[in-house]
Computed example of a mutant assay.
Amino acid sequence: MSIMNSIFSPLIVARPIILPQGQKDFELVFFNEAFSRTVSKTILKFHYFHEFKALLSTEVPWNDMADKAINKIPCEPVTYFSDLSNGWFRVQMKGMDGKYIVVNIENITKEREHSKKLLDTAYIDILTGLYNRNKFLDDIADLTAQAQFNGTKLGLLLIDIDNMKIINDYNGHTAGDEVLKKSAEILKRFSKNIIKAYRFGGDEFLLAIKN
């Protein structure tokens, strides 16, 4: 057990049991120090899955995953958000010696935040904060499919700012950037569920309008 205590991720060891009322459950026989630090002290007082699993997440199929683990059936990890810990976690279960299951609850909050930053870098225009051309090219198939499925219309409005070269040549690129940023701020006011704004490139903006 000292090895498990040295593992950074929260771990639970449990064994299948039949409760007096005939309900199948899993008894908690061990949790490591990382689990103790992560969860509420209230949870540490419980002994069975059914007593505390809802406090961790109601979206995770705990019993189904545990059944698969104990029977050595491959079980995909499940990701959930914990209001209790205000973070994202990935749950994995594996059978051990045919008698126990090991539940690994990995905190992936930083991983998801990093992924979001990478996604923002790929899809957000740094200057204006609007979605960029890459995002539009990814969105257009979904937008078209939604319009066809719902029997609605999809309109695309391309907006081109005139005389940007003159502004840049006579007032500098900083002034030109300010024009682009102010234009983006105006477009953001119109961005709703039915209107999506993109900086298409250079001095061009594009609106995808659903009806």
Rank of each mutant, 00 (worst) to 15 (best):
M1S: 14
M4W: 07
M4Y: 08
N5F: 09
I7P: 14
I12R: 09
A14R: 03
A14F: 03
P16T: 10
I17G: 04
I18V: 07
Q21H: 09
Q23M: 12
K24T: 12
F26S: 07
E27T: 06
V29T: 15
F30W: 07
N32M: 04
N32H: 14
E33Y: 05
F35A: 11
V39H: 09
V39A: 11
K41F: 01
T42M: 06
K45V: 05
Y48E: 05
Y48L: 14
F49T: 13
E51K: 11
E51R: 07
L56A: 14
T58R: 10
V60I: 14
W62L: 07
N63F: 12
N63Q: 14
N63Y: 09
D64V: 08
M65L: 09
I70G: 02
I70Q: 05
N71C: 10
K72G: 05
K72Q: 13
V78S: 10
T79Y: 08
D83R: 04
N86A: 12
W88E: 11
F89I: 04
M93H: 14
M93N: 15
M96K: 09
M96Y: 15
D97A: 15
G98Q: 11
K99N: 12
Y100P: 07
V103N: 15
I105N: 15
E106G: 15
I108A: 10
I108C: 15
T109Q: 13
E111N: 13
R112A: 12
E113S: 14
E113W: 06
K116D: 10
T121P: 00
A122V: 11
A122G: 12
Y123M: 13
D125N: 13
I126P: 13
T128D: 10
G129F: 13
Y131P: 01
N132P: 04
K135T: 09
F136T: 02
D138M: 13
D138T: 11
D138A: 10
A141C: 07
A141Y: 10
Q146M: 04
A147V: 01
N150F: 06
G151Q: 02
G151S: 02
G151A: 02
T152G: 05
T152A: 02
T152N: 04
K153W: 03
K153F: 05
L154K: 00
L157M: 05
D160A: 01
D160N: 11
D160C: 02
D160M: 00
I161T: 00
N163S: 05
N163Y: 06
M164D: 00
K165P: 00
I166L: 15
I167W: 01
T174K: 13
G176K: 06
G176D: 02
D177Y: 00
D177S: 05
V179D: 04
L180P: 07
L180N: 05
K181Y: 01
K182D: 09
K182A: 12
S183D: 03
S183T: 12
A184T: 04
A184Y: 03
E185S: 14
L187Y: 04
L187Q: 02
K188T: 07
R189S: 13
S191P: 01
K192E: 15
N193H: 08
I194M: 13
I194P: 01
R199K: 08
F200W: 13
G202M: 09
G202C: 07
D203F: 02
A208F: 00
K210N: 03
N211W: 03
